[in-house]
């Protein structure tokens, strides 16, 4: 029995390492390629013989890339903040109040997730063009918000459901209003989930490509994924620069995860709130 469970442990470890390698290998390769001279990039070894930061210097010297970086930061930050501000009251209402059509509204919100973003791409582009909002960051912000909000609402609803109603009732008896109870009791308890949802919305907007490609053509409002695409220049193409761009795109996600990792893991496993 003991021998068997040890063997099982080893097999599970090997499988975990294999899966991890499979997932991490391309990312590691991107990072290593970004600090290698172009001539070395296609070599078989993963360990770089020479290290250079020229690709990064190169990419940050490009004005269009810096504009794209700024645009992505603006859109990402607004999307993250607005997602949290809209998703909290929406989720709270779905979780705590009883009203006509509540379950149907909840279902509709979830149903929007059943369509892939590509399926709604054409109508979104047509609507935004007819509103005269093509080539604006506003249009991109709204579409990214619409993309991430449904899942954010459902995630938060799950966490609010897990907070016992009695805690809010105790707060109401102690003298607060229902909304006061939400702010003073429920919100602090689901803070990890709020951080998780905000981070998720930022990352979603930060890496979104298809909608940006369809809505944005002018260089001043391009976001990072679009700027990365422009690096594939047939006249002066450098794998190293493309990889450095990839690293810059991945960096905020990694930094956010490292900053909020406790909250994120807590947010994903929360629910065990006991009095």
């Amino acid at each position: 029995m003991n021998e068997e469970s040890r063997l099982r442990g080893i097999v599970l470890d090997v499988v975990t390492i294999a899966v991890l390698a499979l997932v991490l290998l391309p990312i590691i390769w991107v990072f290593i390629a970004s600090i290698r001279p172009d001539a070395d990039i296609m070599t078989r070894s993963l360990i770089p013989a020479r290290i250079t930061f020229d690709h990064f210097a190169n990419i940050f010297a490009r004005a269009d890339f810096l504009v794209a970086l700024r645009n992505s930061l603006i859109v990402g930050a607004i999307v993250a903040i607005c997602t949290v501000l809209i998703a909290i009251p929406a989720a709270y209402s779905l979780s705590r109040f009883t009203y006509l059509g509540r379950d149907f509204i909840g279902f509709l919100i979830l149903a929007t997730q059943m369509l892939p973003a590509v399926a709604v791409l054409v109508p979104i582009v047509v609507i935004i063009r007819s509103l005269g909002m093509a080539n604006t960051l506003t249009a991109l912000t709204f579409t990214h918000l619409a993309l991430g909000l449904p899942i954010a609402v459902w995630m938060l609803k799950g966490y609010i459901d897990a907070v016992p109603r009695e805690l809010e009732e105790a707060s109401i008896i102690d003298g607060s209003s229902q909304i006061g109870a939400m702010f003073r009791i429920t919100l602090p308890l689901i803070r990890p989930a709020v951080v998780a949802v905000g981070t998720f919305a930022f990352v979603l907007s930060w890496g979104e490509f298809i909608l940006a490609l369809a809505l944005i053509t002018s260089a001043e409002v391009k976001t990072l994924p679009l700027a990365l695409q422009t690096l594939f220049d047939p006249y002066s193409f450098s794998w190293g620069v493309v990889m450095a761009g990839g690293v810059v795109i991945a960096a905020p996600t990694i930094v956010l995860f490292l900053l909020f990792r406790n909250q994120l893991v807590g947010g994903l496993t929360a629910g065990g709130i006991k009095g």
Partner: peptide
């Protein structure tokens, strides 16, 4: 409303606020 009835209630599950210390729980109202 409940908050204006001059009542206090002890719940079956205690309903203590998990993110507050005992002192903060008692001082909350």
């Amino acid at each position: 409303p409940a908050s204006k009835r001059g009542i206090a209630m002890v719940f079956q599950s205690y309903a203590l606020y998990p993110h507050m210390s005992v002192r903060e729980n008692m001082a909350y109202s």
